[in-house]
Amino acid sequence: MEKLEFQFKAASATPAAGTALCGVVGSGNLEILIRPGEPADTCQVHIRTSARGFGRIWEAVIAEFAARHPVGGTRIDINDMGATPAVVSLRLSQALGDYTGGAQ
């Protein structure tokens, strides 16, 4: 298992729910928990992944996500069981959709 932590600056998210959870820690899948975090212009990401040595890819996928969406003022926790970058991107969008009450 590898633990990774990243921080990105982003415009503030507007939560509709207190927290949002999506996905399951199953093979090739991951679960994402989004909840309010400090400060309002920062997105903190904490990852536990079963696949070692992919830190730079995680960073790129999440940086791209943070650039596309207003995700400031959140803390995102991820438990991963070997999801591909595409699955990670989709789950992040899904989790943020649930958190902000937007697209399901």
Partner: peptide
């Protein structure tokens, strides 16, 4: 958000579920 992943799995270096 209030539950905890398994400490046993963490010791074995396996990601838990919330």
């Amino acid at each position: 958000e209030t539950s905890e992943p398994s400490p046993h799995l963490a010791v074995l270096d396996i990601p838990g579920a919330f």
